[in-house]
Nucleic acid binder design. Structure first.
Lengths: 349, 349
DNA sequence: GCATTTTCCCAAAGCGCTTTGAGAATTGGA
DNA sequence: TCCAATTCTCAAAGCGCTTTGGGAAAATGC
């Protein structure tokens, strides 16, 4: 059943039926009700293709899932983010279109989406330092929100980010308070903006205590379990291994834990671990006392906020760019404890 | 630049330009080349909205991401699956539309997608036993492929599945060969078809050795880390704890490992673990000797196969349904070893 | 050389909606 | 009662493509 058939059936013009269904005021309540009832009864829903052409809007938001040829890695937080954002899109009648694309084709894909009119806006994931996508999208005039921020980009744009710097400064300070002096950082991929901010926070924390960063115990890589395992082993093999490790995600933390297990070491006792926890739905760091001490910020909630922001930006294109900075909470779990020296002192009374 | 402008510029009709771009034979090679060059030069790409209306095809595939209100759980294998499928869609000029939807609204969403003409086909994820979505989609005439199968559905339909039954029978037999007699099963959610098949395989393995299933050491739940942890603790607290555990996914296996760690137990030595490994990109079970002994089948590869199958089904609607059964490989890792009794015997020579 | 194909291109009619610009029908005011 | 204002409804023109049904020009066959 299409609009023509429905209006023929009702003895009304297509105009009136369309207006009744879309809530325009030019139609009497009586008629509107009659139209709505008939639509429901006949299972009528306007053809999305026709509606899109007629309105010029796609009623869809684009997300690019970049898949690099080399590492073949999909960001594990992606699905939780999509769950959050997609929920909001659905509530607002928008579709979510997901483009799986190789890193190198990303710019071209944005161009295509814009020219084809396939989406009304896009979300930019995983911004790098001085990310060129921001200039591109601004030039294309395609509304967008960045999940994260991009340092060294001078123009103003919509973004939503966790206060990574403060979170990691707090995590560092927390470990310092426990007496740790040699604290390693297992960070995300170099070049990623969030990783740079987390490093800065870590550095802030150390500096505040009069300490300097030791580059030997700072590393950057894609956040896989394997990375956590290998890197933790390497750290433990050092002449003076760290007494604590800050890890950028729960996934490499699993690997770190495995490395400790291999050596019969216990987190929280033999070595302290603080993680950044995105609160992944299949990997909850909870329980009476959470497994890990963590700076926590729900990526799913971030997805919801991102969607709201983008929909607002599409609705009101002439408003100034919007920004939202979320604070992570620092929750204490089982994976941290006093540094060995402090422990010794305490024991000696 | 739209088609009209492009054809005006070229001094050709819209018909000719459209045909030239879409590879129809009614246009001379010389003209085609001229059109193609001009299109490239002016960055012309046909408007997706108009194309969709004119052709009646959506050039898009739908995936539902079901998010249950209660458990708020997103399947962690989802993103890898999408990465695989989405790659193929992109190669074939299709978009991927992702609908985040509450469990209870799933049927309605399929109806909407079909009526609105928003997609040309859909992928059904996580089929349950006697899944009603299959009948619904058949009735709607919306092409679909099920990732998995649904027992007790009598009609024929497109599916692609891992041979879960055989994989779990092999895993069980493998553990039996190592001397294990008390083997626990940490399965997926009851009601899921894959979980039922895995249970059957487990049962097959035990029966073949003249053993029976002990329901006390079989459990069904959503495959989270927390589940693996809690359940492993419960198993170890039994009067006669199992000497081996088969775990349906790497995620709960992490939890199991954590439970073992808490007690100072080592996988492969104190207790054996076999997992089913979906080969998640951020959670590779590899290395010189993989961490886990596993039945492995790449969910990403399954995504690619599913996409190919669905695109073929859309292209050739009158072909009979297609099916593909993938075998999992059994790879030996560090998490399995001889059962205590056997170990004792071997030691005694 | 003429009739017949074949090649190449075009005008116009959709696809199923929204939206513009007006025209009936109704209501209210004097 | 008549006229103006308001309310309700409609015909028709798009939106930017594809595709049908021809028709002119060029190539072929006799």
């Amino acid at each position: 059943m299409n609009l023509k058939e429905l209006s023929d059936y009702l003895g009304l013009s297509q105009t009136t039926v369309s207006r009744a269904l879309n809530g325009y005021p030019e139609v009497s309540e009586k008629t509107r009700r009659r139209v709505m009832d008939a639509a429901r009864q006949h299972d009528y829903l306007p053809d999305a293709r026709a509606k899109r052409l007629a309105t010029g809007r796609a009623m869809a938001i684009g997300h690019l899932l970049p898949v690099s040829k080399e590492h073949e890695m999909v960001n594990p937080i992606f699905s939780d983010f999509l769950a959050g954002a997609g929920k909001r899109y659905a509530e607002n009648g928008f579709d979510l279109v997901l483009s799986v694309v190789e890193d190198k084709d990303e710019a071209e894909t944005y161009r295509d989406l814009a020219r084809r009119g396939a989406v009304d806006g896009v979300v930019v994931h995983g911004p790098r330092i001085n990310d060129e996508r921001i200039a591109l999208l601004t030039e294309l005039g395609l509304p967008f929100v960045v999940h994260g921020r991009s340092s060294e980009v001078s123009t103003d744009y919509n973004w939503i980010d966790v206060n990574n710097r403060r979170a990691f400064a707090r995590a560092t300070a927390f470990l310092l308070d426990l007496g740790h002096r040699r604290i390693a950082l297992l960070n995300g991929l170099a070049g990623m903006d969030f990783a740079a901010r987390r490093f800065k926070g870590y550095q802030d924390g150390l500096h505040a205590a009069g300490l300097d960063v030791d580059p030997d115990i700072v590393s950057h890589a894609e956040m896989t379990e394997t990375y956590g395992y290998a890197r933790t082993n390497a750290l433990l093999d050092l002449d003076t291994p760290p007494t604590a490790i800050i890890i950028s995600s729960i996934i490499p933390a699993i690997g770190a834990r495995r490395a400790l297990g291999d050596r019969g070491l216990t987190p929280g006792k033999d070595i302290s671990i603080v993680i950044h926890d995105d609160d992944l739905s299949y990997f909850r760091n909870d329980g009476d006392v959470p497994t890990y001490t963590a700076t926590r910020s729900s990526v799913r909630a971030a997805g919801e906020e991102t969607a709201d922001m983008l929909l607002a930006a599409i609705r009101e294109p002439h408003q100034p760019p919007r920004q939202l900075l979320l604070e992570a909470e620092l929750t204490v779990g089982q994976s941290t404890g006093a540094a060995p020296a402090v422990r010794q002192l305490l024991k000696e009374g």
